[in-house]
């Protein structure tokens, strides 16, 4: 099957600032594809190019087999967009937000009206039909934005930080809805700062920083390749960490010290965890042995410091 999105050496410049510095990726039909990256990585810039509103400065991009430069209108007819900043229409009540938005698409009013009702139920806002937008909580607004993005039954759904700023209940509800959509075969592109979100939802993802792609694979494969299976953490100053590691054969396992934390990244083949724990107990230090996560990969690749 031909890819839903195909980007090659894709670049976005604002005046002379390079926000996206030549990235390559392909998204297959039915896939949930993630963009992970710190603030300013270029995620939204990339999403806006996929949306076929902002035009690439260089490189090639094909969305649904078409060129955004010439076929923006046709592409957007089949696209659903959930933008990073909520731009619901505060002048209109909940239901009209869906009806008016639906009117921009080539579909009959009756179809839009039926879908609007179904979608409000789908995102559990059925009882908020006539509420004003400012009366909604952040999570309700986000769900409404997602419902709005689905009004044209899109084949490709673009979600720019769908759950940022929401409480755990709201995030879980949105995840459930997104998994339902994925099960129906909707292709999804998602940006997020939340590692658990990416791990739960994405089949494949890229880690971006400074406009470049640093790594690209499934969450599991990224963890295995960059971190391993387990992480041993020890509360230790730089000097304490040096003492702790002195004379210890790490069998090639990598380690990292930041602030007051020493982390040793372990795979099964290292068979180190018992020795590390013994040593930590002997020294009376605080330690933790936990599963490796995407967050470890992310921090390893993008660095631990805030670089904005």
């Amino acid at each position: 099957m031909s890819p839903v999105v195909e980007a090659c050496a894709l670049e976005k410049r604002y005046a002379d600032f390079v926000a996206v510095a030549g990235i390559d990726f392909q998204i297959a039909p039915g896939e949930c594809f993630g963009f992970l990256g710190p603030n300013g990585a270029g995620k939204t810039s990339t999403m806006r190019m996929l949306q076929s509103v902002s035009l690439p400065s260089a490189g090639t991009l094909r969305v649904l087999g078409m060129d955004p430069r010439h076929d923006g209108k046709r592409i957007r007819t089949r696209l659903g967009v959930c933008p990073q900043a909520d731009n619901l229409d505060p002048d209109l009540p909940v239901i009209d937000n869906l009806l008016v938005y639906g009117s921009y698409f080539p579909q009959a009013r009756a179809v839009t009206a039926r879908r609007a009702d179904e979608l409000l139920e789908f995102v559990a806002l059925g009882d908020k039909k006539n509420h004003a937008i400012p009366e909604l909580s952040g999570g309700m607004k986000r769900r409404l934005v997602i419902a709005r993005a689905l009004i044209n039954e899109p084949e490709l759904l673009l979600l720019d930080e769908p759950t940022t700023g929401l409480d755990p209940q709201a995030r879980h509800l949105i995840w459930t809805k997104l998994r339902e959509l994925r099960a129906r075969g909707v292709t999804m592109v998602l940006t997020t700062h939340y590692m658990d979100e990416a791990e739960r939802l994405c089949d494949r993802l890229v880690i971006m920083d400074g406009g470049k792609i640093l790594a690209q694979d499934s969450p599991r494969a990224l963890i295995d390749a960059h971190v391993g299976q387990e992480v041993f953490e020890l509360g230790a100053s730089a000097a304490e960490a040096r003492d702790f590691l002195a004379g210890l054969d790490l069998c090639g396992a990598s380690h990292e010290h930041t602030g007051d934390l020493l982390a040793v990244f372990l795979s099964a083949k290292h068979q180190l965890s018992e020795r590390l724990i013994e040593r930590a107990r002997g020294a009376g230090s605080r330690y933790l042995l936990r599963n490796a996560t995407l967050e470890d990969v992310f921090l390893k690749l993008t660095g631990r410091e805030l670089d904005e």
């Binding site: 007819t77 229409d89 698409f105």
Partner: peptide, 14 residues
């Protein structure tokens, strides 16, 4: 402030 045009630009409207 309302981002109305921005929202519309995500639809087929040019």
């Amino acid at each position: 402030t309302q981002g109305t045009f921005e929202a519309i630009l995500a639809t087929p409207v040019t």
